[in-house]
Amino acid sequence: MGANDFITLFFLVAAVLIFLQLRSVLGRRTGHEKPPADPFSARQSIKTTGSEEEKVVTLPRRETVDEEQRWVEVDAIAKPGTELNEGLRHLIKADPSFRPKDFLNGARMAYEMIVMAFADGDRKTLKGLLSKEVYDGFNAAITEREARGEVIKSTFVGIDKTDFLQATVKDQEELITLKIVSQLISATYDRDNKIVDGDAETVGEVIDIWTFARDIRSRDPNWKLVATESEQ
């Protein structure tokens, strides 16, 4: 082998090694990567628990409907003349694309995702669905739980009821408060795998008062959980 052939072979081997190193560090894009799922976005589908390939929930599209139909929908949710009815009407005037029923569907999915993500300590999912203040509280609780060596095992049974409690627009921000009644099996285990809280077999009723918010001025259609309260 001549000197020139040896040099050519050397650079060829070096180029292959560099390519392999870069691919291992940066990964490969296949063109099928998916953004994080968001329950309030109409542009995505959300995979639920169970078979990841078989269970897919397609969210309704956000679209503006005629004014009369919007008011009929509001009146079906809240009695005309009530504070809630007026609040929903005011919110729709500020955001014509808002549909109460579509919002409830997204809120139910968000609720299950948040409850299960908290139990699993899934900070990534929580960060995309919570305001900074609420996330900080959830994160602190997860960190304390991890420090004690505790693990929560939960099974989400379902949501029995979801009701609007309040709807307002304040400083260009839409705020909606819901009462959510769900069924959950949940137990907390210590380092020795002994139950220290909850029940691993009994289905318990959970009543939460959650408030979601969205900036009307933003092009982002997504809502975030900004306040939580449990009803005993």
Results as ranks from 00 to 15, higher is better:
residue 1 M to P: 13
residue 1 M to D: 11
residue 5 D to Q: 08
residue 5 D to N: 08
residue 5 D to L: 12
residue 7 I to E: 09
residue 7 I to A: 15
residue 8 T to R: 06
residue 9 L to T: 04
residue 10 F to G: 09
residue 11 F to E: 11
residue 12 L to G: 15
residue 18 I to P: 04
residue 19 F to N: 14
residue 19 F to P: 10
residue 21 Q to R: 12
residue 22 L to I: 09
residue 22 L to V: 09
residue 22 L to G: 12
residue 25 V to G: 05
residue 25 V to W: 13
residue 30 T to N: 11
residue 33 E to Y: 02
residue 35 P to D: 07
residue 35 P to Q: 11
residue 36 P to H: 07
residue 36 P to I: 10
residue 37 A to S: 14
residue 42 A to M: 13
residue 43 R to G: 09
residue 45 S to Y: 15
residue 47 K to C: 14
residue 47 K to D: 15
residue 48 T to S: 07
residue 49 T to F: 10
residue 49 T to Y: 10
residue 50 G to M: 05
residue 50 G to D: 03
residue 52 E to F: 11
residue 53 E to Y: 09
residue 57 V to T: 14
residue 64 T to K: 13
residue 65 V to K: 12
residue 65 V to S: 15
residue 65 V to H: 13
residue 69 Q to Y: 09
residue 72 V to E: 10
residue 74 V to W: 01
residue 76 A to M: 08
residue 77 I to L: 06
residue 77 I to E: 01
residue 77 I to C: 02
residue 79 K to R: 15
residue 81 G to L: 01
residue 87 G to E: 02
residue 90 H to P: 00
residue 91 L to K: 04
residue 93 K to S: 12
residue 94 A to Q: 03
residue 98 F to W: 02
residue 99 R to T: 06
residue 99 R to H: 08
residue 99 R to P: 00
residue 103 F to S: 00
residue 105 N to Q: 11
residue 106 G to R: 00
residue 107 A to V: 01
residue 108 R to G: 10
residue 108 R to V: 09
residue 112 E to D: 05
residue 114 I to D: 00
residue 117 A to D: 04
residue 117 A to T: 01
residue 119 A to I: 06
residue 120 D to Q: 11
residue 122 D to C: 06
residue 123 R to D: 08
residue 124 K to I: 10
residue 127 K to R: 10
residue 135 Y to R: 06
residue 136 D to Q: 14
residue 137 G to A: 03
residue 141 A to Y: 05
residue 141 A to C: 06
residue 142 I to S: 03
residue 144 E to H: 07
residue 144 E to F: 14
residue 145 R to E: 05
residue 146 E to A: 09
residue 148 R to I: 15
residue 149 G to W: 03
residue 151 V to H: 08
residue 151 V to F: 08
residue 152 I to E: 02
residue 155 T to V: 14
residue 155 T to S: 07
residue 159 I to E: 08
residue 170 K to I: 11
residue 170 K to D: 13
residue 171 D to H: 12
residue 171 D to S: 10
residue 171 D to G: 06
residue 172 Q to R: 14
residue 173 E to P: 07
residue 174 E to M: 14
residue 175 L to P: 12
residue 177 T to P: 02
residue 178 L to N: 01
residue 181 V to H: 04
residue 181 V to S: 08
residue 182 S to H: 00
residue 184 L to F: 05
residue 184 L to A: 04
residue 194 K to W: 10
residue 198 G to N: 02
residue 199 D to Y: 05
residue 199 D to T: 02
residue 200 A to V: 08
residue 205 E to W: 08
residue 205 E to K: 07
residue 206 V to Q: 13
residue 207 I to M: 15
residue 209 I to D: 13
residue 219 R to Y: 12
residue 221 P to Q: 02
residue 223 W to M: 05
residue 224 K to A: 12
residue 224 K to I: 12
residue 224 K to N: 06
residue 224 K to Y: 07
residue 226 V to P: 05
residue 230 S to K: 12
residue 230 S to M: 10
residue 230 S to N: 07
residue 230 S to A: 15
residue 230 S to P: 12
residue 232 Q to C: 14
